[in-house]
Nucleic acid binder design. Structure first.
Lengths: 120, 120
DNA sequence: CGATCTGGTCTATGTTCGAGACCGAGGACA
DNA sequence: TGTCCTCGGTCTCGAACATAGACCAGATCG
């Protein structure tokens, strides 16, 4: 299965994993998805909860996640404006396998830190 | 579990997931790990198989993966030089939860592409 | 002597990112 | 009437980072 990542035609196009991970593997996407997991959130709420993300990147990240069908965006025509974001079914289903990775990260962070410390 | 990603102290430090994903979630790390999955590989072999990675990034990525204990590097003092890379136990164990994500990517790429096409 | 091999590094150029200024519509306040 | 505030962004600027490609060392082959 892993070999699909590295086959010849995997380069550039039509490799699902590279494609998906290029969207998801950036600094912020996963964080935004996880923050949306509990439920609907507004823009500024995401900004506050994530804390160290810039408006620009939050905006860009949300836009891409929306484009790829992970989140839904709902604008309420009020003043001041209110924009709500929520996970789609696709977004929620994505977090499922992610939990396995998160469990691994929790279990193995110590080992990584140790390796990092050990390798001088 | 996901909430660990977004708790207050998750910001900046001591969040295993953010920490791990910062190493792994870049453009190349996962790709290198997957390419090393079948067994030992030399530098130029990785370069060829991945195809669109630059020497510089391959070098840098390998160095970081080595530092974090995912891969082992073995230099043979010959001319021309021969340097071999292989997964460590940690590296191999990491690919385990990754397979879940890869399966998801394969199963859902169509949906993503559709969403991307649909959202104009 | 000159070419060739490997595993990188160096440099010049282009892309991306974060910080923070700015914006527009309407309501609250004076 | 005028001024300020809110929210969800966008714009600009300088800094950081990625890419392509030239270059290197040191032994061996012809």
């Amino acid at each position: 299965m892993l070999d699909e990542i590295r086959t010849a035609d995997a380069q550039k196009n039509s490799c699902p994993i590279r494609d998906v991970l290029d969207r998801i593997g950036d600094q912020w996407s996963l964080l935004v998805l996880a923050t949306l997991d509990p439920g609907v959130k507004r823009f500024s709420q995401l900004e506050r909860e994530i804390g160290d993300i810039s408006k620009q990147m939050l905006s860009k990240t949300l836009r891409r996640l929306e484009q790829d069908g992970f989140v839904a965006r709902e604008v309420h025509a009020e003043v001041p404006p209110r924009v709500e974001y929520r996970l789609t079914a696709l977004g929620r289903s994505f977090l499922e396998p992610m939990r396995g990775l998160i469990r691994w990260a929790e279990a193995n962070q110590a080992a990584i830190v140790a390796a990092r410390r050990g390798a001088r």
